[in-house]
Amino acid sequence: MNLLIAFLLTVLLMSGVWLWQRRSGRADWVDAFWAGSIGALAVFYAVFGDGAVEKRVLVALVAGTWSFRLTRHLAVRLAGHEQEDGRYQAMREHWGERAQFWLFVFFMGQALIAWLFSLPAWVVANDPSPAMNVWVILGVVVWFVSLAGESLADRQLSAFRRDPANRGKVCQVGLWRYSRHPNYFFEWLHWFSYPLIAMGAPFQWLAWLGPVLMLLFLYRVTGIPYTEKQSLKSRGDAYREYQRTTSAFIPWPPKD
């Protein structure tokens, strides 16, 4: 029942965001609401779940901090731009007069995806074992490393972009020297926290949806393909050289 309620709440939220974008013309804010909804669902599962209190508190902490950091990061970035993100402008142009209908379909898809990504938190929140064993500790370590790595990558990129001297250049400082998308890598790493914390729990296999789905989305849907395309368009040969020398995903020493 909690899963059904969670899904309906997410659909209601995304419907409200869709109505809001009709007036504001800013469909790109769905990204921030998407990230926030996953954390909100995790807290919902933690409050109403049937698992051990220890696991429910832990999943609220792990998912809640990840969601808050990402939502805040996206909201600050979106608030700093007066115009809608180019990806959503391209959607409107492509769909033409039926743009609002297809945007609604897209927003409902976002609701479904957010619900699917919340399932690992549901598994942890319903784990009856209060044990804080080596798997749980490892899961917390992965969560901490991923959160720190993603935060550092975002700060390094923001600092690079704020410097007028770097306009038109490719960011290759800090973590960006070893991966073209370190923020995506640590985002993906974060999702391993849940199957580790839920090791041995009922429906534990559902917790693996997180890393599997995130890798699929980053590599094939909205992550790396779109970002690389935009970077090649704006930075040309400089980015092609960056592609040649630098790992696309997993941080690795650059080629000569």
Rank of each mutant, 00 (worst) to 15 (best):
G96T: 03
F68C: 15
H81M: 15
H94G: 01
K55G: 12
V62H: 09
G86C: 07
H81L: 11
A46F: 05
G49Y: 00
I38L: 04
R69I: 01
E84V: 11
E93I: 06
V53Y: 13
G51I: 04
A63M: 15
Y45R: 03
A35F: 08
A42E: 01
S37Y: 02
A32W: 10
E54M: 04
S37L: 02
Q83V: 15
A75D: 09
A35G: 11
G80T: 10
G96I: 02
R77T: 09
G49H: 01
A79N: 15
F68G: 13
R92L: 02
G39N: 01
A52L: 12
R69C: 00
R87V: 07
V53W: 13
R77F: 13
R87G: 12
G36E: 04
A60M: 02
W66H: 05
A79W: 15
V57H: 09
L78I: 13
A52D: 10
Y45S: 04
H94A: 07
A46C: 01
M91D: 02
A52W: 10
G51N: 04
R87K: 10
L61F: 07
G49T: 03
G80N: 13
A60K: 03
E97Y: 06
L78N: 14
E93R: 10
Q83L: 14
A40H: 03
G36H: 08
W95S: 05
G49R: 01
A75P: 08
Y88R: 12
F33M: 04
R72P: 11
H73C: 14
R92T: 02
L78V: 09
Y88L: 04
F44R: 00
L74Y: 07
R92V: 06
V43Q: 08
A90Y: 05
G51Q: 06
Y45G: 02
A46G: 02
H94Y: 06
G36I: 05
F33E: 06
A46D: 02
G39H: 04
F33H: 09
D28P: 06
D85Q: 11
A52N: 00
D50V: 08
I38W: 15
Q89Y: 09
R98A: 07
R56W: 01
R72M: 13
E54K: 08
G80V: 10
A52P: 06
R87Y: 09
V76Y: 00
W66K: 01
A60N: 07
R98S: 08
G39E: 00
G51R: 06
F44C: 11
W29T: 10
